[in-house]
Amino acid sequence: MSQKIAYFKNWIGNGPALFASGPFSDLVRVIPLYDLEKTDLSGYRALLFSSNLDQRYAVTQRDRLEAYLEAGGQMVCNGHIVRPFLRFLRLYEVAPYQNVETLRIHPAMPHPIFAGVDYEDLTFRRGVAGFYSRGSNPVPEGAEVLSTISPQRLPVDWLLNLPGGGRLLVHSGNDIWMHANDDNSASRITPQLMNWLQEAV
């Protein structure tokens, strides 16, 4: 399988500096989102979708995206699901706000992506909670829950391993790589995510 990872951008310019010119620019190819329909997905070991995804468009690509996952591909999706563009996705549910504990992020199943991450650094940015997530994209059957939110422990980050070796990682909030330059343990997530995506044969 190709070594490259595709990042689909719904914006002008060359994409996030992290992928366009930064430490992962050799690994990641930034592709305009609306070129998805003419992209040979088999050429990429993983597909990255930001929280800025046009989900109305993604729905039109559902069959191709599901076929990609079933063939062993990997996908990372961020944001709130409002139009399930994969059969594994459900509509986002915000955590009804009561107090700061509503927004506290909790570890669930250990995973290399979150190794060494202090969850205080996910819950708070400069003392303010709510940047990482404010709710949950409900899980499909068989998903592994990696992190949760609120006293109700609603799923925030979850991973679905498919029979053909495909992997779907869903983050219920701002782009999970937004912490790449944070001056704390949250910065571990992005390189650990990129390493994990490269380990698949």
């Binding site: 719904n10 929280s51 800025n52 995804l53 046009d54 989900q55 109305r56 468009y57 993604a58 944001g79 709130h80 699901i81 409002v82 139009r83 986002y92």
Partner: peptide
């Protein structure tokens, strides 16, 4: 205009 994003959808 709706760009299909989650935040446009909710709004």
């Amino acid at each position: 205009l709706d760009n299909g994003t989650y935040f446009h959808h909710r709004t």
